[in-house]
Amino acid sequence: MQNLKLLKAIVERKNRLRRGADEGQTVFEYLGIIVIIALIIAAIIASGLAGNIAGAITTVLGDITGD
């Protein structure tokens, strides 16, 4: 019975360690995605496409609402 309790404690500890490693990795993955999105937005603004995109969205919204 003592061996079973010890085995259970070891397995629970390993599971906790695995989950902790996954959580840390997820934070860096989200950070990477945020950085990529920010770079894409900065490139759109720097290239001057932002005005064209805003104009196209305004036109489409006007067509949808009937203005």
Rank of each mutant, 00 (worst) to 15 (best):
M1A: 11
Q2P: 00
L4T: 06
K5Y: 07
K5G: 00
K5L: 14
K5R: 08
K5N: 12
K5H: 07
K5D: 07
L6V: 09
L7T: 06
L7H: 07
L7A: 14
K8E: 12
K8R: 15
K8T: 04
A9L: 05
A9N: 06
I10M: 08
I10G: 03
I10Y: 08
I10K: 15
V11D: 04
V11F: 08
V11A: 09
V11S: 10
V11K: 13
E12C: 03
E12H: 06
R13Q: 11
R13I: 02
R13S: 10
K14E: 12
N15L: 13
N15H: 06
N15I: 15
R16C: 02
R16P: 01
R16S: 08
R18D: 07
R19I: 08
G20R: 15
G20Q: 15
D22S: 08
E23Y: 13
E23Q: 06
G24P: 02
G24N: 11
G24C: 09
Q25C: 04
Q25L: 10
T26F: 12
T26Y: 11
V27D: 07
F28S: 05
F28W: 07
E29Y: 14
E29V: 09
E29R: 10
E29C: 03
E29Q: 10
Y30E: 12
Y30D: 05
L31N: 04
L31C: 03
G32Y: 10
I33D: 05
I33A: 06
V35P: 00
I36S: 10
I37K: 04
A38W: 01
L39Q: 04
L39P: 00
L39V: 01
I40S: 03
I40Y: 02
I40L: 15
I41C: 04
I41L: 14
I41S: 03
A42N: 07
A43P: 00
A43E: 01
A43T: 11
A43V: 07
I45L: 13
I45Q: 02
A46S: 06
A46W: 03
A46I: 02
G48E: 13
L49G: 06
L49T: 02
L49S: 04
L49P: 00
L49C: 03
A50G: 05
A50P: 00
A50Q: 08
G51L: 15
G51V: 15
N52H: 08
I53L: 12
A54W: 11
A56P: 03
I57P: 00
T58H: 03
T58P: 00
T58L: 14
V60Y: 05
V60C: 04
V60H: 04
L61P: 00
L61S: 04
G62H: 12
G62R: 15
G62A: 08
G62Y: 06
G62V: 03
D63N: 14
D63C: 05
D63Y: 13
D63V: 07
I64C: 06
I64H: 04
T65V: 11
T65R: 13
G66P: 02
G66I: 00
D67E: 12
D67C: 03
D67H: 10
D67I: 13
